[in-house]
Design a protein around this nucleic acid. Structure first.
Lengths: 342, 342
DNA sequence: TTGTAAGCGTTATCAC
DNA sequence: GTGATAACGCTTACAA
């Protein structure tokens, strides 16, 4: 292994000079700088990350965590967590060329209590990105005690740097799209209760209705867990109990939409001829699903990119004021909504 | 920050004794051991990973990489890489309780040449897990020059430790299942050309046909990229050009199946009444897809679990002989295949 | 069984 | 501009 010492000897300078060159210290004469650089190149020297970390007391890794509900994961009874992967993709991209490595960890929760990430406990990281998930205040504050640079992705969490999604206006846009296509009896299958995003989505739903002068009907606003079976059960209830059916459905997530589609396929109810469907998320479930659904797309990679930038900012300046950026949405038309005239 | 020194002082012993306690060295007297342990507990001491790495010359991180085709990722024109995520889940699970952190990286390829992972170049990891992907010999050998512990997941790669999937017998099982349900005109839309798994799957297909005395028909063995559009175009070609249609389709991946389903939905060809479909993969695309497809499931988490174990083994004993384990498959019946009597 | 001391590869302080 | 040198927190001979 080539060390800074070897480089120094070969270049005929001291360790400190080499170190300064590596760290782009402007004090070094250009001449010596290039001499050292060429020796580094020739010898194939690379910095020993551990040594750097030890001396500087700064870690060269960032962390990203997600929450796990092991029993349900990837099953129709649960949510496929595609959000996590899409966001992680954005982080990867933005991380290129930096000196940071990216550590991942899955957080288990037992009885609703989330375990503190191992990489936080063992002090391996300089900053942490938390992707979505439902966690308690206790959890996040314990983390911040140990590590000051934390950014939350996917929700607007008070007092923490966040990259949030505009769930309210995303939903508003989706519902308005349906209304503009002539629908007035719209069923909204929202996400689970006691969730910030669910509340925001409800606001968006109500706003769009109000603007169009459509009265809010409790029966047309359902709540469902983020899962295929949740969507399936919800739509089944509506179709089996109600005599009148909505002309359009909007779902709070792709997993819920998957359940709805499955029910319609079973009943041979075709989209969009028989009923219109649109959804919020635009994950690979919708991208690869059948039929393709018109969807609210949130550019999740952008969430990762912004998150990384915010984390860098926070690390650089721990005293910076709290910031929350919101990633815009757009609607992707895939023809699953029929234009009707009432 | 609490150091080993602080613990030593508080416990009234020397640094080395503390170190020995931490490392479970049996030489320490049980009495001193527990004294030290209690002080560690009280002071909340945690090891400084960087210092350990520096002294032992061993890194406390493992790496996992995947390959990226950025332009296509997560689009219907590409493959959603769910394999990667499923496998990663297994690694996470198995990693719990170890001292290792898990570094992720996405590998870019330009003109078919894969870049050497940053974490390998910068010497951050003790071992590397490579998930699937198509890479050249040059790439993998350059990596092994720098880091001796490498395990490849998803394919049987000569001369490297591998956790492979039994693509041949998986396909065989799927095709046999169709045959057992009375199908004799079976279209197999295999994966892309020049791919090991595609060749293996073809072998499985041919074997099942041969056993049933069904002659191999070139027109019934197509190749397609792993993508939704690939499957769509393939099935479209068959249905628009051929006068006779197969009674059953088997696809080489879930993304290909997604394309097939989309075409059938457009043409209002219903599954399984009008045609039977089964697939290889059983990713979330199938889990959440409509209609649910009978599928060959490979327990991808198990691939991750086995991979981690093999990597540990390799790290412990770099001279161990090369090993390749194969993860079994099972068939998940979701009712997308009709029983027919010819 | 425990303590002393050297050393890991780097950065940072301070002379020169 | 550059070079000694101490320090970072830990492990490991070797000595006691």
């Amino acid at each position: 292994m080539v060390t800074i010492q070897d480089v120094a000897k070969a270049a005929g300078v001291s360790k400190s000079t080499v170190s300064m060159v590596i760290n782009n210290n402007p004090k070094v004469k250009t001449e010596t700088k290039y001499k050292v650089l060429s020796v580094i190149e020739k010898l194939g020297y690379v910095r020993n990350v551990s040594a750097v970390e030890l001396t500087t007391k700064h870690k060269q890794n960032l962390g990203v965590i997600r929450f796990q509900r092991a029993e349900l994961k990837n099953s129709f009874e649960g949510d496929p967590f595609t959000f996590y992967h899409d966001v992680a993709n954005g982080i990867y991209r933005e991380l290129q060329g930096s000196n940071y490595g990216l550590l991942h960890e899955e957080i288990k929760s037992t009885n609703g209590i989330c375990q503190i990430p191992q990489m936080v406990k063992t002090n391996r990281i300089e900053g942490l990105l938390i992707i979505g998930g439902i966690f308690d205040k206790q959890f996040i504050e314990t983390i911040r005690e140990k590590i000051s640079s934390v950014v939350i992705l996917g929700v607007d969490y008070p007092d923490y740097d966040c990259v949030a999604m505009d769930s309210k206006f995303g939903t508003y846009t989706g519902i308005k799209y349906l209304i503009d296509h002539g629908h007035r009896d719209i069923l909204f299958i929202n996400g689970p209760e006691f969730t910030t995003s669910t509340d925001l989505k409800e606001e968006g739903y109500r706003l769009a209705l109000a603007e169009a002068g459509i009265p809010f009907n409790e029966k047309r606003h359902m709540k469902s867990p983020f899962s295929g079976s949740g969507g399936y059960n919800a739509i089944k209830e509506v179709f089996e109990k109600d005599t009148t059916h909505p002309t359009a459905i909007f779902t709070g997530s792709d997993s819920i939409a998957a359940g709805v589609l499955r029910y319609f396929y079973e009943k041979r109810i075709m989209i969009p001829e028989d009923i219109s469907v649109a959804t919020f998320d635009d994950s690979i479930l919708t991208e690869f699903g059948t039929p393709p659904l018109t969807s609210i797309n949130m550019n999740k990679e952008q969430v990762g990119i912004e998150g990384y930038r915010m984390l860098k900012r926070r690390i650089k300046n721990p005293k910076a004021e709290r910031k929350c950026v919101t990633v815009p949405y757009k609607i992707i038309d895939r023809g699953s909504v029929k234009k009707i005239t009432g």
